[in-house]
């Protein structure tokens, strides 16, 4: 997903304007001209100038239409699906781990992603189980990270 220079310049310019406007509401240090808004405003001005520069440069180079170039991988349904699966799996972990526990949730994340990437199911499950136990023992037991527990797998902790 590649933005062309004109579109990228426009986005940077708009981002700069948005930051500037939002920073207008920030307060100053009492009795001073500077405060919470100083830095965001400076970043905003920098962004706006950069955006303008990029737009002018793109126009001079003959680019007239802001466009989005779809990368090769977006043409392949398999690649798009794999990226979506990876993202959904992370969201799944965030949502499901607190209720079903770390071990089942992480098993699903690893095994499903491996299979999506064309690993044989048996290998995927075996490696995932091993990795899952190693991670759980290393982080949960050794480093005492409170990974979400599963009732029936309490012996691992």
């Amino acid at each position: 997903m590649k933005f062309n220079d004109l579109l990228l310049g426009l986005l940077v310019l708009l981002g700069g304007i948005a930051i500037y406007v939002s920073a207008l509401g920030f307060t100053d240090i009492p009795g001073q001209d500077y405060g919470a808004g100083t830095m965001p405003r400076a970043v905003a001005v920098f962004a706006a100038l950069l955006g303008l520069f990029m737009i002018v440069k793109a126009l001079v180079a003959g680019i007239r239409i802001p466009s989005l170039d779809l990368a090769d991988w977006l043409g392949s349904r398999r690649s798009v699906l794999s990226v979506l699966v990876a993202l959904v799996l992370v969201v799944f972990y965030i949502v499901a781990a607190p209720s079903i526990g770390f071990v089942p949730a992480s098993l699903v994340v690893m095994a499903v992603l491996m299979m999506t990437l064309k690993t044989k199911p048996l290998t995927a499950v075996a490696v995932s189980v091993l990795a899952c136990v190693v991670i759980q023992q290393a982080f949960g037991r050794l480093l005492l990270v409170p990974l979400p527990r599963s009732e029936f797998l309490g012996f691992l902790w």
């Binding site: 992370v90 972990y93 690893m110 690993t119 490696v127 899952c132 991670i135 480093l143 990270v145």
Partner: peptide, 23 residues
Amino acid sequence: ARVLMPIILMFCIVGSFAINNSP
């Protein structure tokens, strides 16, 4: 890499969680 990357992703998840113990 197709086996390694999912494991790395899991490490990323646990590592990010471990800093504040927060999702």
